[in-house]
Design a protein around this nucleic acid. Structure first.
Lengths: 141, 141
DNA sequence: GCTTGATCCTCTAGTGACTAGAGGATGTAG
DNA sequence: CTACATCCTCTAGTCACTAGAGGATCAAGC
């Protein structure tokens, strides 16, 4: 239905269109996330609409915190709409579990740091709660 | 009051006593967090009690997520109990603010990922919410 | 046609906080 | 005396970029 568009985007335009920096686009190509695009006679990369969509996909996945390996798998799945999506779900759920765990850990740190700073009366270092807590080697962690 | 203890801990004992791996201890020395310890005739490092305490301090600070630069500053403050602790407090509060912000961001990701995975019915990739959300380039982020 | 400045190319090295491994010397227990 | 553990230094790898060198090419204005 849609006409196949000839490659017409320079790497700079692609960068502007997606918000992904030019060196990062080249990095993604080298990392195997983007296919090598055709080049002009003077060796410049030329991108088409599918490349634009693919880079958008990568960008969104990165914003969600997926690492490049996970994105490789997700892209592979997106390229095969006939497969079941259980793999995609597993990747997302695994990532969700990682994030949930990370939040939990950070909240524990938040609690301890918050206690440290509010306890500190602001006098000399010798009476400083921040330093004192760090020097206490018998803490439970 | 306490007797000055002669260096008696090998790097392996120090590692076992603090839970910091041997290569990491050497790395901290090279990074300037630990002073160069005396050596045996055969060039092996020998640590004493103050070194043990210092490494414990570093370990605890790392567990709290301080970066090595911050730890350098905190160690410097701990070495000078006569100074005011406002610098230590500023470092801790800055770090606390960073962590709070990070938690906020991760919670946003958690929400979106959670929506993605629960929406997914588990059929073909062509109907997969996970892949679909990633392919949607018009999302607001 | 010519100049200027933007954009493009490849390649290397740096970030942070380690971790892994090579290749070799030394220490310790049986 | 023989294993085997531990130690030494040094280099390189991790992740996802980012910065910069050094050079080619392009587009616009004169």
């Amino acid at each position: 239905m849609t006409l196949p568009s000839a490659p017409h985007l320079t790497i700079g335009k692609l960068s502007a269109a997606t918000g992904v920096k030019v060196p990062t686009i080249r990095f993604y190509e080298q990392a195997g996330l983007l296919p090598e695009p055709p080049r002009t006679a003077s060796d410049r990369r030329l991108y088409d609409e599918p490349a634009l969509r693919r880079l958008g996909f990568i960008r969104h996945a990165r914003q969600l915190g997926f690492d490049l390996d996970a994105i490789r798998s997700l892209l592979d799945l997106a390229d095969h709409p006939d497969r079941t999506c259980s793999d995609a779900n597993a990747i997302a759920e695994r990532h969700l579990a990682d994030i949930t765990e990370k939040i939990r850990q950070l909240q524990a740190l938040q609690t301890e740091l918050s206690r440290m700073t509010t306890d500190c009366a602001g006098g000399r270092v010798s009476a400083c709660k921040v330093i004192e807590v760090l020097q206490d080697r018998d803490c439970r962690h």
